[in-house]
Amino acid sequence: MLVEEVMKKDVIKMAPTETIGKALKLLNEYHIRHLPIVDEDNQVIGIVSDRDVRDASPSIFENDPDPEELKNEISSIMTSPVITVHPLDFMEEVASIFYEHEIACVPVTKEDKLVGMITEKDMLYTLIQLTGTNVQSSQIEIKVENRPGMLPKVTQVFGQRKVNISSVLIYPYKPDSRYKIIVFRIQTMNPMPIINNLKEVGYEVLWPNMPGMPS
């Protein structure tokens, strides 16, 4: 899945000379946690998180109605340089960036201009799409030998039964590395005929898969 398919295009952004007070207002108004800072050419020159802004704000125990701190320029607290991604990058790469840099948001730039934002929440949305749990389906798990050609063999059964697959995931079988588990979400309420076909050809089907329980 490409970044441009997932990113938010209506980006709330700020100029470096605007105040921290304005940032606080924007974060609250739009329920967001990051603000990119752009120059007059729409190039990303910094980013602030809600935490940066709060650190720079007066304590809630102060009763000053018009605190001086909030009048400082946002550029004084922004992080730069900024890690960015391209619209044609993959979401998998964004996931690695979030994980490695321990961040939760990246601006998307094209020809150095800001065109979108990707956040942790967009990443989770992608995960939900990938797992296929957002559409009506049943889930079955199949234990297969870890060697080439297994997936097409298994999926053939679904095709013959005219059952649409909404997602496929493959993960390692922890107790024994010679095997893998293929997880299918299939669009049927009655997976029994498929399960029987798979068992007939010798696959181990886990439906449901619960440790300590018979399957």
């Binding site: 749990t133 049943s138 309420m189 449901p208």
Partner: peptide, 9 residues
């Protein structure tokens, strides 16, 4: 639970 069973929701 919809973890395994149709419709999943």
């Amino acid at each position: 639970t919809g973890r395994y069973l149709f419709p999943g929701t």
